[in-house]
């Protein structure tokens, strides 16, 4: 439940002296350098804990908010087969959300707190979900590009230093790559279809291409948290490295679909061994993050509404559980 997860905060122990602190930090960094996973009960710098909670809750929120654009097409899926595939995908995403919330709770922040931060706007989620899902083709494009970009990120995260998160990522990546293949297969079907279906495909990719590239975050030079996160192996690769990997993998797939990508500067660079690509519209990125995207307000409003509408249900469940407990005691 959103609201009922209470967890034990770590027991406070006496603050270490600055000398001890330095020693602890040194040992901690040594472990990271030796690729030993950090586990919940171990000492870690406050900033490491905070960075992880920020990143993991953002990830969990993204999974949960990401259900909205897809849920928008559940009742309109054009075949029963597609309908159950979409249902199963959305169900997987809810599962990922739960799994990551639970992993984040091992760091001492409850799910209720994380949800509150999401609803108040203090915590973010992937800005891609502030773009609307307008056509059926978007269900394929989201699988192919959005899940594709997410996997590129998450494969790197699965080698990250925090044990519970990296283990969660291994499992989640398996399901995500399945979603990506399903999304691509949906688009492949459109690419072999009628003129209208092909147009629907191209139009959808045109809308999602740039926002997908933005999913990797700002350029390395402008990324405020990156250097420390790399040192702590919370991140394993830089934003620009990951973005390049994604582009290199995706361009041939677009060619196979017989579509174009909306970037006149996109071309193979023999010397670099990578695709060159155009400048991302960082002003748009900044605006969507600030809350000015096409769906920011609706996404949060829908989350808040579900939460508030369900309050009486969660209260009833809690009251019933308490009665049962009292019966057991008596």
């Amino acid at each position: 439940m959103y609201g009922d997860t209470s967890i034990q905060k770590p027991i406070k122990i006496a603050e270490p002296t600055s000398e001890e602190q330095a020693r602890l930090e040194e040992l901690f960094q040594q472990k990271i350098d030796d690729n030993i996973k950090i586990e919940p009960q171990e000492w870690m710098p406050d900033a490491y804990r905070k960075t992880l909670v920020r990143q993991m809750s953002q990830h969990a929120h993204s999974e949960v908010i990401g259900m909205q654009p897809e849920g928008n097409w559940l009742t309109r899926a054009p075949s029963l087969r597609r309908k159950v595939i979409l249902l199963a995908k959305i169900q997987d995403e809810g599962g990922h959300g739960l799994y990551i919330y639970a992993a984040a709770e091992t760091l001492g922040t409850s799910r209720a707190e994380m949800i509150e931060q999401l609803q108040s706007g203090k915590a973010k989620y992937s800005s891609i979900f502030n773009y609307p899902a307008l056509t059926w083709a978007d269900m394929g494009t989201i699988g192919w590009l959005v899940d594709g970009a997410a996997i590129t990120n998450q494969v790197a995260l699965s080698r990250g230093s925090y044990g519970p998160y990296s283990r969660a990522m291994i499992r989640i990546c398996k399901e995500e790559s399945f979603h990506q293949r399903q999304g691509y297969e949906l688009l492949l079907t459109l690419s072999k279809g009628t003129k209208e279906q092909k147009e629907m495909l191209q139009e959808s990719v045109n809308r999602f291409w740039w926002p997908s590239l933005m999913m990797f975050g700002p350029n390395d030079a402008d990324s405020p948290h990156s250097a420390q996160s790399l040192k702590w192996k919370i991140k394993k690769k830089s934003n620009d490295q990951l973005r390049q990997e994604f582009i290199d993998a995706t361009v041939p797939q677009a060619e196979f679909l017989g579509i174009t990508l909306p970037d006149p500067d996109l071309k193979w660079n023999e010397e670099r061994g990578h695709y060159d690509y155009g400048e991302i519209d960082w002003e748009e990125f900044g605006n969507v993050i600030k809350g000015n995207g096409p769906c920011n307000k609706q996404r949060i409003a829908a989350h808040v509404k579900a939460h508030e509408d369900g309050a009486w249900v969660r209260e009833a469940a809690a009251a019933y559980a308490e009665k049962q407990q009292n019966k057991d005691v008596a």
Binding site: L74, I90, G94, A306
Partner: peptide, 13 residues
């Protein structure tokens, strides 16, 4: 399926 993103908790959904 109309309950998607409208349920009282993720588990219930």
């Amino acid at each position: 399926s109309e309950w998607c993103f409208r349920a009282p908790s993720i588990e219930m959904e």
